[in-house]
Design a protein around this nucleic acid. Structure first.
Lengths: 197, 197
DNA sequence: ATCATTAGTATCGAGTCGATACAAGTTGGT
DNA sequence: ACCAACTTGTATCGACTCGATACTAATGAT
């Protein structure tokens, strides 16, 4: 009875979910710390990674802003830093002159081969099979819930997109109804800002 | 065949583990962004949370340094900021005068009730049961692997510690062989720097 | 043509964070 | 008792983060 009372303060807080949150927090911190490699900052790595897997319509400052849930100002500054380091190239858009398209330089692609996040990937490979699957499913469900909550964009690939119409053959890319453009197979594997379930 | 060649560039990178890593990265970024509530910075929240669940032997700058995997300087600075905000109180140690013990103020405990990480916890509760369990197990296995890799301390609770000798009754706390001290039940639920499997 | 919206930039201030250098207390060997 | 090695923590620097605010310029809607 006394034990119950003394424990209550803790058991109240230590539900399973709070426990997972703690793991997530600590892991998050480790990932953040890891991301200082090559003289880059965590956000700079995040931007490089995003640009590396985003399709041509989605490599803009505003898309980066939305993906990383930052302010325009922060993204603008970060992009300037990356441009100064020669990792990102800005390109003006012909049709809409407010727009800027971002491209990775070859140096950036080289740097990404030493991406510190790959060290974490390698540990994921070593996980027990069921744990790895559970982790993936849990992460996805959690992330989706959080993104929905703050009305962010999901940023998925074409296969799972409402606007996508698949090609006739296996060897074909498909078509995007929203943008009215034909897609190569490679395009279909890249992230898109306009993705909708 | 052509499809294979075109895809190879992507499938090379897009193994399941890289995919999970991507989820983890984005989630990590969301957690980081969330942690600007109450005019505090992400690290400051991390420190408050740690101090809130660390036992008396573990509430020192060096333990914080080890838990968050930061440098002494960063932690020192952060603690000064928290002290200036009236959230943390430093206390000199009588036996070892190099040591500083950290305590949370009542304001800090109040602030922790609005911990932005709780918003994420609540989403964890809403997860499907098997996904939640899988997430927890996967996170723990991954975190343990990473901590082992960088030779960090695990920071567990007494129940699972090599140095712990349980009390006779349910209502008793136990004893720590390492520190040579009796533990209350409450103590046994707090994180310890000296934890060893 | 006007006016709201959207894309992006510029600047500020408090804070992060690794690096380096340092002060002070403790411990172990002789 | 002494001294070197180690540990705990602080101080300072510089590049960068990041929200806030204010701004420019292009586009779009009525």
């Amino acid at each position: 009875m006394i034990a119950r009372v003394v424990l209550s303060r803790y058991s109240e807080r230590m539900t399973t979910s709070a426990h997972s949150a703690r793991l997530l927090e600590r892991l998050s911190r480790l990932i953040h710390n890891e991301a200082h490699a090559h003289g880059l900052k965590p956000v700079q790595w995040d931007v490089l990674r995003y640009l590396n897997v985003a399709n041509r319509y989605s490599r803009s400052p505003s898309a980066v802003t939305s993906y990383l849930n930052l302010t325009k100002g922060t993204v603008s500054q970060t992009l300037n830093a990356l441009e100064a380091k020669g990792l990102v190239v800005k390109r003006a858009d012909a049709t809409d002159r407010r727009r800027v398209t971002l491209d990775l330089s070859s140096q950036a692609r080289t740097a990404l081969k030493d991406d510190p996040l790959l060290r974490i990937s390698s540990h994921l490979d070593a996980l027990q099979d069921d744990n790895r699957r559970g982790l993936d499913a849990g992460l996805r469900e959690l992330l989706d819930a959080l993104i929905r909550e703050r009305k962010g964009r999901p940023f998925g690939v074409c296969h799972t997109c409402r606007h996508h119409r698949p090609g006739r053959d296996e060897g074909q890319g498909g078509f995007c109804n929203l943008l009215g453009e034909t897609l190569s197979i490679a395009d279909g594997d890249l992230l898109c800002v306009e993705h909708a379930a």
